[in-house]
Design a protein around this nucleic acid. Structure first.
Lengths: 141, 141
DNA sequence: TGAACAGATTAGATTATATCTAATATGAAA
DNA sequence: TTTCATATTAGATATAATCTAATCTGTTCA
């Protein structure tokens, strides 16, 4: 069990462990950034068991549905994915579309009255602006 | 809201007032929901000056860039748009993808340390779950 | 008022992203 | 092992958005 945390993780969510699915999960867990489906496709195929595009998308859908992976929609660009490790918020760059993590802190929930009959599953806080690479260097003044 | 207000609004953002652009803005301002680009395309063309798909997308891009309209990316679905009227948060339905408004309340900003060199423009709070139509009806009353 | 022209519009092609199909293969339970 | 529900595959298809290059138009200013 301890030798393979990923397999346990998949089994615990009722997902069969296949080389392709395992590779996607392993890649996302060791990855610091927030790759797109195509980037994941290329990365896992660079190693070995060749995964088709459909398999990557299928597995990402299943992993998101199982709550192991988070999908971040970015307007005008491909969605990005990350393994749900430590809780965190997301910063999306206006300029390059990159997604970066921001330390997690608690967010106040809305008043019951403004939710009405809606069933709240989660609150997501997204920051927008210029990411580390796109922000202008500070100029002494 | 008088028709002139829209023209002033556009001019104030350095945007020329054209029948097509005006129609997009007018539609979004009188619209309670969060239509997709295609829905806007169909709605404004149902009235009169025929707008091409490209014009709808161009104008939406310009209006978003001018800060008059907000774009909401929804994973796996088309983006949705609304005129920035009163500040509000968004609720995205897990099941149908609909976007609904939630009363606005202030969100605490992250600590400067966790932003680093990043330039923060805005904080966006997104709620997820089941929308009014998709939530199961309450049994007891 | 009416040129002039920067900016806007157009139809349709193109690109980008994601899903579907149906034939085949495989993990894991028994 | 055998079994079979589940997963994978290549390629086609669907959907969302952008691009192209020809044409048109709002606004400015003489």
């Amino acid at each position: 069990m301890q030798p393979d945390a990923i397999k346990r993780c998949l089994a615990g969510s009722g997902l069969r462990s296949t080389p392709q699915r395992y590779a996607v999960m392993a890649f996302l867990m060791k990855q610091a950034g927030h790759p797109t489906a195509v980037e994941i496709f290329e990365a896992v195929n660079r190693v070995d068991p060749r995964s088709s595009r459909a398999t990557i998308y299928n597995n990402l859908r299943d992993l998101v549905h199982a709550g192991l992976v988070r999908e971040v929609a970015v307007e005008g660009r491909a969605a990005r994915f990350d393994a749900k490790g430590m809780r965190h918020h997301h910063f999306i760059c206006d300029r390059c579309g990159n997604v970066e993590d921001v330390d997690w802190y608690d967010v106040p929930r809305p008043a019951a009255a403004s939710l009405g009959r809606r069933v709240l599953r989660e609150c997501e806080l997204i920051f927008r602006g210029l990411c580390t690479r796109c922000a202008p260097r500070r100029v002494s003044r």
